[in-house]
Write a protein that binds this DNA or RNA. Structure first.
Lengths: 363, 363
DNA sequence: TTGTAAGCGTTATCAC
DNA sequence: GTGATAACGCTTACAA
């Protein structure tokens, strides 16, 4: 082994260096530093001092190899560029850091093959567990668990037959709900309480006197279907029917186009519930283009309360999701699963209606 | 060593298993699998088959320990919740994945202590290099290099004296520029070409006949100072002076407040260059609140072209930054530095003016 | 071309 | 309480 002349300056101190300096064995160094109960206080002090002097940091890869735990978790996001998931990621990273866990990041961009590849990378890197976000119903749950990596999902998308999105629109709401919920699910999943939260949005519009309320969804992802079903359920309760339903891809442009279709017909609604804020902002754009005033001619409510929601024109009424909290919660659940198995869990957190200026009493 | 009866099912295959099955030594397995030139084709095939059969994946932590390279880089962001940095992160993650590098993520939230702590975590995890984004002028460059971790910065904030932000406003532009550029810099840095890009924004407004042009900055971060200086330089060239200067913290709300101050006075500008799209959108909000029409009464141009920029009311004229490209570039530069040292580099990428509806000819 | 053996930096299991 | 010593899974001289 080649060693530079200035070895001490170049090379990071190892446990052996500390052992030598403090006059004990490497084994004792570990014990002293890891808080093992049976170490003489005096010994512990000597070791700690030596470690301090040498600026010793345990080599975490070596630790991982020896212990079998890498103290690292994998985080699979649709995209860090997405402001919703970006915020969720903040909560995840924050909570993980509190427990000294490092976070390995990957974006799936909604592509199955990419998701699989990145998950594989995580497993190669020997993560202790993974958090999969943004509905990757396609992820092979079996493989994950076979490989011994506990996983927590945020926003699981059930693997449903082709017609699921349509079913959520047409089947009796309760039936549709059963259908959505019947799919195989992961052991641990957290998310927002889409069903009730969507109801809150509808009730707000009902209170404002609206009865021609439309909905713009976002395909077959679970949150979209649940929000739609919640929407229908709430209308049912008021003895109303959805005035119009449109689908989008959940993007700004998708929202704009869907709203355009909705508003150009002769069955234009007076109020609109959008899948999320992005779709809602897209819809507002469409309204403006068509010379409709928001909220005078059209009320709009979104979901999430992303940061710009309060700054668009007019400021958007929306249902705030506890984004960071969801992230933190996911890590906590994962932590529980890291040592031993925990019971299956399906946690929903409520959103909160934030009334701003995009909704108004029906003209 | 305890071994379950179903060892083969429970335990992941190691290199020894592959060696045994293919009838060679572990050393040969490595060589065969890593593409070492001197392996008999026949042997290589046998090994590959065995690996395939056993579903063998090298334990990357063990590899890292043996080779000294973890094939992992650390990414320090201000926040994944920030849409600009979120997009940059997409480019980084994407480019890294192409080279099989894993990305360790951490958010600094602009806090020095947090940044230091996370950087420390990265080093503990033995990352091969780090990418530090969003102006962390406070990061101890010396320590990073002493610890042998190459670093690439995206958006370095020079460590400047307290009055720097003011200097950028008051000193002769060229002098201010020298001042900003005089600060110690990291070896490798990439970013947008703020100076020229800002000029493009100003020229656009000049062409529209504006001569009362204001600027809303964002403190002492380098990009803010350079954009301000570019702004002043471009006005100088036209024989004009800045009509008004305001500072903000670079947030939506900060932009709103700054614009409010600017627009309520009797020296209200007819056009505004904002530090970035967030500030610009905040400013638009202020304008609307004050019953000013955009762009009829006030033209506004932003920077970045974040996704909502095209969907706010009115759609925002802005300078598009090559966000993902910057991220990719940073990884490429880091890659060069990973093996051996590369020459210092300071790469600027130009932005592109995207004219939409928030700017118009002066009334 | 291939095998042997040492080593990467820890931790865990024994003894003492 | 502490020290040897053997793992952990892989790579890389050095021999053969």
């Amino acid at each position: 082994v080649e060693q530079s002349v200035h070895a001490s300056a170049a090379r990071a101190a190892t446990i052996k260096d500390v052992a030598r300096l403090s006059g004990v064995s490497a084994a004792t160094v570990t014990r002293a530093l890891r808080g093992h109960p049976r170490v003489l206080p005096e010994t512990r002090r000597r070791v700690e001092d030596a470690a301090q002097i040498l600026d010793y940091r345990p080599h975490s890869l070596a630790q991982a190899l020896a212990t079998g735990a890498s103290q690292t978790i994998g985080l699979l996001l649709p995209s860090t560029g997405d402001r919703y998931w970006g915020e969720v990621a903040v909560g995840i990273e924050e909570r993980a850091a509190e427990d000294g866990l490092a976070v390995l990041l990957a974006n799936s961009h909604g592509e199955v093959s990419r998701a699989e590849r990145m998950l594989e990378l995580f497993l190669t890197k020997r993560v202790d567990g993974v958090i999969v976000t943004g509905g990757a119903g396609v992820v092979d749950l079996g493989r994950l668990s076979r490989r011994g990596a506990p996983a927590v999902f945020i926003g699981w998308d059930p693997v449903v037959e082709a017609g699921a999105a349509e079913a959520a629109e047409t089947l009796p709401p309760k039936t549709a709900l059963d259908l959505v919920r019947s799919s195989a699910r992961p052991d641990a999943e957290v998310g927002s309480d889409d069903l009730s939260t969507s109801g809150a949005a509808v009730r707000h519009l009902l209170e404002l006197g609206h009865d021609r309320i439309g909905f713009i969804g976002a395909g077959a992802r679970e949150s979209a279907m649940l929000r739609l079903i919640g929407f229908r359920l709430a209308l049912d309760l008021a003895g109303l029917r959805p005035w119009a339903l449109e689908r989008s891809d959940g993007s700004l442009e998708g929202g704009r186009r869907a709203a355009e279709r909705l508003l150009r017909g002769d069955r234009a609604p007076t109020a609109l519930v959008a899948y999320d804020d992005l779709v809602a902002i897209g819809a507002m754009r469409a309204a403006h283009t068509l010379d409709l005033r928001v909220p005078a001619d059209l009320s709009i409510v979104g979901f999430d309360d992303i940061d710009v929601a309060a700054f668009v024109e007019p400021p958007l009424t929306t249902v705030r999701q506890p984004k960071r909290e969801l992230g933190r919660l996911a890590v906590s659940l994962l932590l529980e699963r890291l040592d031993g198995t925990a019971p299956p869990i399906y946690e929903r957190r409520p959103g909160k209606l934030v009334v701003r200026e995009s909704t108004a009493r029906r003209a």
